[in-house]
Amino acid sequence: MRLGLSLGYWGAGPDPQAAERVAAAEDLGFDSIWTAEAYGSDALTPLAWLGARTTRVRLGTSVVQLSARTPTATAMAALTLDHLSGGRMVLGIGASGPQVVEGWYGQPYPRPLARTREYVQVLRQVFARERVEFAGEHYAFPHPGGTGLGKPLRPTVHPLRADLPVLLAAEGPKNVALAAEIADGWQPLFYAPRQDGHYREALAEGFARPGARRTAGDFEVVGMVQVVVDDDVEAAADRLRPMLALYIGGMGARGVNFHQDVFVRMGYADECARIQEAYLAGRKDEAAAAVPLRLVEEVALVGPRAKVAEEAHVWRDSLLTTMVVGGDPATLRTIAEVLG
Rank of each mutant, 00 (worst) to 15 (best):
I182V: 08
I182Q: 03
A183W: 00
A183C: 04
A183S: 05
D184T: 02
G185Q: 09
W186E: 09
W186I: 04
W186S: 06
W186N: 05
W186H: 06
Q187P: 00
P188N: 10
P188T: 08
L189E: 15
F190D: 11
F190A: 10
Y191P: 01
A192S: 07
R194S: 10
Q195S: 10
D196C: 03
D196R: 01
H198G: 02
H198M: 06
Y199P: 04
Y199D: 12
R200I: 12
E201L: 12
A202V: 11
A202C: 11
A204Y: 06
E205W: 06
G206Q: 03
G206Y: 00
G206D: 02
F207K: 06
A208D: 14
P210W: 07
G211S: 00
R213E: 05
R214A: 10
R214H: 11
T215H: 09
T215S: 15
G217E: 15
D218E: 07
D218M: 05
F219C: 04
F219Q: 08
F219V: 02
E220T: 01
E220Q: 10
G223L: 05
G223S: 07
M224H: 10
M224K: 06
V225T: 04
V229L: 08
D232P: 02
V233T: 15
E234P: 06
E234N: 15
A237Y: 11
D238V: 10
D238C: 12
R239P: 08
R239M: 12
R239G: 13
R239N: 10
L240H: 13
P242Q: 13
P242E: 12
M243G: 11
A245E: 03
L246F: 15
L246H: 15
Y247T: 10
G249E: 05
G250K: 09
G250D: 14
G250Q: 12
M251N: 12
A253G: 14
G255V: 00
V256Q: 14
N257Y: 05
F258S: 07
F258N: 05
Q260R: 14
D261Y: 07
V264T: 14
V264P: 03
R265T: 03
G267K: 12
G267T: 13
Y268I: 02
A269H: 08
D270G: 02
D270P: 04
C272D: 11
C272N: 09
A273M: 00
A273D: 06
